[in-house]
Amino acid sequence: MLVIPCPYCGPRPELEFRYGGEAHIARPEDPSTLDDEAWGAFLYLRSNPKGLHAERWRHIHGCARYFNVVRDTISDTILASYKVGEAKPDMDALARILAGGPRAAAGEEKSK
């Protein structure tokens, strides 16, 4: 079971959360201005990367807030967690931390 860091409540067990799909896909300000192709892309096209993925989670059985995390889809390591509206973190910097191993990713023993 994953331990997911909620930006409001701290690290909590996965059972309390609901997955919310890829993050940073904003609903268009005025959907009527989009042609079918652009609207279809908004509805359905997602990046599905092997590696770091910015994604939405909701702490539904906790503070009930939606928020974003960056998770490595290979190892499930979570490298960042931030509130809705905050900027997407520097993914390259996170990739470097990930390469440092599980303890570096957990933010401990960074020097070792």
């Binding site: 609901r18 919310g20 904003a26 609903r27 939405r56 909701r58 539904i60 009930a64 807030r65 939606y66 809705v84 509206g85």
Partner: peptide
């Protein structure tokens, strides 16, 4: 959940 999603993430 659908309502909260829009309220929290689109129309805060």
């Amino acid at each position: 959940a659908h309502m909260e999603d829009y309220l929290q993430t689109e129309w805060a």
